[in-house]
Simulated assay, not measured.
Amino acid sequence: MTTTAIASTELTDLLEVLAKTRGFLRFTVQGLTDEQARLTPTASKLSLGGLIKHVRTVEEAWMRFAVGGAELMMGSVEQDWENGFRMLADETLEGLLKDYEETAAKTERLLGELDLNTAYPLPQAPWFEAGASWSVRKAAMHIIAETAQHSGHADIIRETIDGQKTMG
């Protein structure tokens, strides 16, 4: 198998897993009203609409990193962290899902164009090892992990709202 074929298979695998985790998250909110998507029925302050919004924001930030490193990532990182987890009164679930779909399409296009081996130093933050770098590949894997983690949060919130489960 050639290096190009291996890279293509790897990209296909990354995109398939990302699509699956996104699918779980989208499934979790199907059939909800905007009011239900704003509910915070668990011990946390998380809502389903807020999780969709947050996951989109994080994906966009990491894809900016994948394109140009920490400076590009941090250049427009959401300043209002708390509201980044909330579905605000002027937002609709339909609008948040549409925005998320646009982000997903852009991510898939960019990952198809970028070299997965390109690496950049991480931004300075207490949760990153000082001086560490991540490749585009690792940024893509982080997007998958972030989406999967929040899909689990969403599943618990949805089950609390009306008993629907994503799996099981």
Score class of each variant (00 low, 15 high):
residue 138 K to W: 08
residue 113 E to N: 03
residue 142 H to E: 08
residue 88 L to Y: 05
residue 49 G to I: 02
residue 127 W to F: 15
residue 128 F to A: 09
residue 9 T to N: 03
residue 20 K to P: 03
residue 42 T to Q: 13
residue 18 L to F: 02
residue 136 V to T: 01
residue 122 L to D: 05
residue 105 A to V: 01
residue 63 M to R: 08
residue 159 E to R: 15
residue 61 A to R: 13
residue 88 L to N: 10
residue 8 S to C: 08
residue 143 I to S: 05
residue 153 H to T: 00
residue 135 S to M: 08
residue 29 V to A: 15
residue 106 K to M: 12
residue 138 K to C: 04
residue 144 I to Q: 10
residue 23 G to L: 04
residue 130 A to V: 13
residue 44 S to H: 06
residue 107 T to W: 03
residue 33 T to F: 04
residue 28 T to S: 13
residue 81 W to T: 15
residue 44 S to V: 11
residue 27 F to C: 04
residue 42 T to V: 08
residue 59 E to C: 07
residue 87 M to C: 10
residue 74 M to D: 11
residue 27 F to L: 11
residue 34 D to F: 05
residue 123 P to V: 06
residue 66 A to D: 12
residue 87 M to E: 08
residue 159 E to P: 11
residue 118 T to P: 02
residue 146 E to H: 15
residue 112 G to V: 06
residue 83 N to F: 01
residue 130 A to D: 11
residue 78 E to R: 14
residue 109 R to Q: 14
residue 30 Q to S: 13
residue 4 T to I: 10
residue 27 F to H: 13
residue 42 T to E: 11
residue 140 A to Y: 13
residue 152 G to W: 08
residue 72 L to G: 10
residue 83 N to K: 13
residue 80 D to P: 14
residue 111 L to S: 00
residue 31 G to D: 00
residue 141 M to W: 10
residue 19 A to I: 04
residue 3 T to P: 06
residue 101 E to D: 15
residue 42 T to N: 10
residue 98 K to F: 14
residue 15 L to K: 12
residue 125 A to S: 12
residue 34 D to R: 08
residue 136 V to M: 01
residue 100 Y to V: 00
residue 109 R to A: 12
residue 51 L to Y: 01
residue 17 V to H: 07
residue 114 L to R: 02
residue 9 T to S: 03
residue 131 G to V: 09
residue 108 E to L: 04
residue 126 P to M: 01
residue 65 F to H: 05
residue 123 P to A: 07
residue 148 A to Q: 11
residue 63 M to A: 05
residue 19 A to R: 14
residue 49 G to Y: 02
residue 70 A to G: 08
residue 92 T to L: 01
residue 161 I to P: 06
residue 134 W to H: 11
residue 40 T to H: 12
residue 69 G to D: 00
residue 51 L to D: 01
residue 32 L to I: 07
residue 106 K to F: 14
residue 20 K to V: 09
